[in-house]
Design a protein around this nucleic acid. Structure first.
Lengths: 112, 112
DNA sequence: TCAAGTACTGACTATATTGTCAGGTACCCA
DNA sequence: TGGGTACCTGACAATATAGTCAGTACTTGA
């Protein structure tokens, strides 16, 4: 989104971190449904492509929000989970998620 | 951002509404500093162009979050303020803003 | 031997969002 | 007559973000 650093307000910074098309959903899935494998995430997020999922996971990881655990097996197994830091974000995100949930119909109706 | 409707979760819907580059800042300004004129907003948000400000204000208005009051004067005077609906969003956004504020340094350091 | 599952990578393309720039109306002040 | 203020609009260009598609390595099951 080509955000302006230094940020004008905390909100700006937070949305920068969580603003990708699938990031909020990933965070929500990982909090709600525990550690998940790559393929599980892909199947649970309808419409996401492998490429975008990898890319967003990498970003969330380098932001320290998500932990990636690779098991050296064949076939490969990789598990993603929230870090403690990630959980603090999930917590801060919850009221917004509730707001969106409560106003979903209105948002879908008015937001072109 | 070409979001997916119907939304996967409330968070998705909420970020769709608040995800523009300057929208969160506008909402925050209007809540924090009361009704503001167009020019006041522009001066308070460093880096925003008139075009983007108008565009985002129009979207926030058509989403029912912001109220636009035009005074038929010369020179023109237009005041923007939050609607009640907009205030509920601001409220839901606050924990996220606090999170961003608290972790600003970390975000700036890690988020490329 | 061929297909399928697993977790990816990378080149290329498409779309969405943002920015630049010029202009437009109406008035006041010098 | 020429600025300055105020609130915009629209054409066009630039950038950012997302999507498509092919391909990797290895192994199990048919």
């Amino acid at each position: 989104m080509a955000r302006n650093r230094p940020y004008t307000c905390g909100l700006d910074a937070a949305i920068d971190v969580v603003g990708g098309k699938w990031k909020a959903t990933v965070l929500w899935m990982l909090e709600d449904q525990g550690p998940l494998r790559f393929g599980e995430l892909r199947r649970r997020i309808p419409g996401v492509t492998e490429k975008m999922l990898v890319q967003h996971l990498r970003e969330l990881e380098s932001d320290g929000l998500v932990h990636r655990e690779a098991y050296h097996q064949v076939p490969p197994k990789v598990e993603y989970s929230l870090t403690d830091y990630g959980r603090t974000l999930e917590l801060a995100l919850r009221p917004l998620g509730d707001w969106g949930h409560a106003n979903m119909a209105r948002i879908e109706a008015t937001h072109a």
